[in-house]
Design a protein around this nucleic acid. Structure first.
Length: 450
DNA sequence: CTTATAATAT
DNA sequence: CATATTATAA
C-alpha cells in the first residue's frame, strides 16, 4: 500500500545528533507567567529538557530582562493573561525589538485568542496543562527562525555547513537523491540540531546507540515487562528529543528480537531432547504468539533473586525445560567469559530471556574488565542497575574502528544466524563524547507483499 | 498500545 | 541490489 504524505500530528521530529540527553542543551528560555506555580512547573520541565531557564512573573520584568541583554535568550514562553501586561503586548514588543521566537500559552484554547497570538507573531500557542512533549520541541522554533533569518540575509556559505550537521543519518549521502539544503546555524548554545522541517530537509532518523539502548533497557526493566509501554519507557528514559513513536518502534524491534531469541532457544532445547519436545514446542508456540517473554521473565526475576531460581520458573512455564547446553549457547552472545557465565541461576528459561534482554540487545559491552553478567536484572520492581556502558574509546582511530571486542563464541550448534554484533558509525562530528556504536540485530525476512 | 508497511540507510 | 533499522499508518 502506499501512504499518504504525512498527515500525522505536527510534532514528532527527533533530533538525534548527540546520543545523550544533550541536544540543544542550554537553549536559553525565558518563561513569563504570573502564576508562580506554573512558573515552577515549567521551569522544572524545561530544565529536564536541558534548557537553561529563566523565569519571571511579570511581563514588564521580562521585557526588562530582554532589553537588558539583547542576546541573552533564545526563546520566550509567555502566558497570555497577566496582570501587568497583556501577553500579546509583550509578544508585540519582543517581536518588534528583538525578534525572538515567542510561544504563547494559556488555559483556554479559544480560537480567537490563539489566532490573535499567531497573528501577532507567536510561533506557537500551547494550552495548559503543558506537557513535556510540547516543550521538547521548542528548540525547533529557534532553529527555524534562525534559518529564516539566515536565508533572508542570503547565506551562501551553507555548503560546507550542511555537511557538518546534516549527517546523522547520513543524509548527505550516498548519492544523490538529495537535493536540498539550506540551513545554517550554529549558535553558541545549541550545538547542532537538525531535523526541523521547514521547507526542505529530510527528517532525521534516530539512531539507537548503545547508550540509548541501554537506557531503554533499563527503563524497560524498571517498569516491568508486563507493563511496558512506549510512553512509560519514554518518560523513564528522560531523553528529551525522543518521541513516543521512536520508543514504540524500538520496542517493537526489541520484542521481535527477544521473540526470535527465545524461539531459537526453545528449538535448541527440543533438539537436546532433554525434555519432551512436544511439550516444549507446544508451549512455545502458544506463549510466543500470545505473549512474550514477558511473563516468563517476570516470574523468573523474582525467583532469581531468591536464588531459588530455576525450579519455579521452569515449572511455571514448563515450556522451557532446559538443558545446560542451551544456556550456554545463549550465553554465547554477550558473555565476556564463556566459561563462568552459564552457571548459577541460569538454567532456566528465565536465564535465557534475561540474558537476551540485557545483553544481546541491551548491552553491548565492550567489556574488557569486569565482564560480569549480572544475571539479575530482569524486571519488575527492582532495577538493579544494569551494566553501564564502559567506555568505548576509539578515539585514536581515524576513521576505521575495529569491531569491538565482541565476544562471539558461538557454539556451533544450530544457529540460523548470529544476531548481534556491533558496528561503528563511521565518523562524524568532531568531538564527541558519545560512543558511536550501534547494535544491529537480527535480520528480518519475510516480507509479504501483495 | 501493537502490528504491519513504507521509507531510508547501509 | 539486499538487508536492516526507523518512521508511519492502521
Amino acid at each position: 500500500m502506499m501512504m499518504e504524505n504525512t498527515s500525522k500530528n505536527s510534532g514528532g521530529f527527533s533530533t538525534p545528533r548527540s546520543d545523550n540527553n544533550t541536544f540543544p542543551a542550554g537553549l536559553r528560555v525565558l518563561v513569563v507567567d504570573d502564576d508562580p506555580t506554573w512558573l515552577k512547573i515549567l521551569e522544572k520541565m524545561l530544565k529536564k529538557c536541558s534548557y537553561q531557564v529563566t523565569t519571571c512573573g511579570l511581563a514588564r520584568e521580562a521585557l526588562y530582562l530582554l532589553r537588558e541583554r539583547k542576546d541573552g535568550f533564545d526563546i520566550v514562553i509567555s502566558d497570555v493573561n497577566m496582570p501587568d501586561m497583556d501577553g500579546f503586548k509583550l509578544l508585540e514588543h519582543v517581536g518588534l525589538e528583538m525578534d525572538l521566537p515567542v510561544i504563547m500559552m494559556s488555559v483556554d484554547g479559544e480560537t480567537s485568542r490563539v489566532m490573535k497570538g499567531v497573528q501577532h507573531g507567536a510561533c506557537d500557542y500551547l494550552l495548559k496543562p503543558i506537557r513535556m512533549k510540547e516543550l521538547r520541541n521548542i528548540w525547533q522554533h529557534v532553529l527555524r527562525k534562525k534559518m529564516q533569518e539566515a536565508r533572508d540575509v542570503g547565506n551562501h556559505e551553507l555548503d560546507q555547513y550542511d555537511e557538518v550537521w546534516m549527517l546523522n543519518g547520513a543524509e548527505i549521502l550516498s548519492g544523490k537523491k538529495r537535493k536540498d539544503f539550506d540551513n545554517k546555524h550554529d549558535e553558541k548554545d545549541m550545538s547542532e540540531p537538525r531535523g526541523v522541517d521547514s521547507s526542505s530537509m529530510k527528517k532525521a532518523r534516530v539512531v539507537w546507540t548503545v547508550d540509548l539502548h541501554q537506557k531503554f533497557v533499563k527503563a524497560v526493566n524498571q517498569i516491568g515487562f508486563d507493563k511496558v509501554g512506549p510512553k512509560k519507557i519514554l518518560d523513564l528514559m528522560g531523553i528529551p528529543w525522543l518521541t513516543r513513536e521512536n520508543v514504540a518502534s524500538h520496542l517493537q524491534k526489541y520484542r521481535l528480537y527477544l521473540t526470535r531469541l527465545q524461539k531459537e532457544n526453545e528449538v535448541k532445547a527440543s533438539f537436546c531432547g532433554v525434555k519432551h519436545p512436544d511439550v516444549s514446542s507446544q508451549e512455545t508456540s502458544s506463549s510466543l504468539s500470545l505473549q512474550n517473554p514477558v511473563d516468563v521473565c517476570t516470574d523468573v526475576t523474582n525467583d532469581k533473586y531468591g536464588g531459588v531460581s530455576g525450579g519455579k520458573a521452569i515449572v511455571q512455564n514448563g515450556k522451557s525445560s532446559i538443558c545446560e547446553s542451551k544456556v550456554k549457547v545463549v550465553v554465547s552472545v554477550p558473555a565476556a567469559e564463556p566459561s563462568s557465565v552459564v552457571e548459577d541461576n541460569f538454567g532456566s528459561p528465565a536465564a535465557v530471556s534475561k540474558i537476551g534482554l540485557n545483553d544481546s540487545f541491551g548491552l553491548v559491552n565492550t567489556n574488557v574488565k569486569n565482564s560480569k553478567v549480572p544475571t539479575t536484572y530482569c524486571s519488575t520492581g527492582e532495577a538493579p542497575q544494569p551494566q553501564y556502558k564502559q567506555d568505548f574509546n576509539q578515539s585514536a582511530n581515524g576513521s576505521s574502528h575495529q569491531p569491538l571486542p565482541v565476544v562471539s563464541h558461538q557454539i556451533p550448534v544450530d544457529h540460523t544466524q548470529e544476531t548481534c554484533f556491533l558496528s561503528h558509525v563511521p565518523s562524524r562530528e568532531e568531538r564527541d563524547r558519545h560512543p558511536d556504536i550501534k547494535i544491529n540485530l537480527l535480520s528480518s525476512r519475510a516480507k509479504v507483499k501483495e
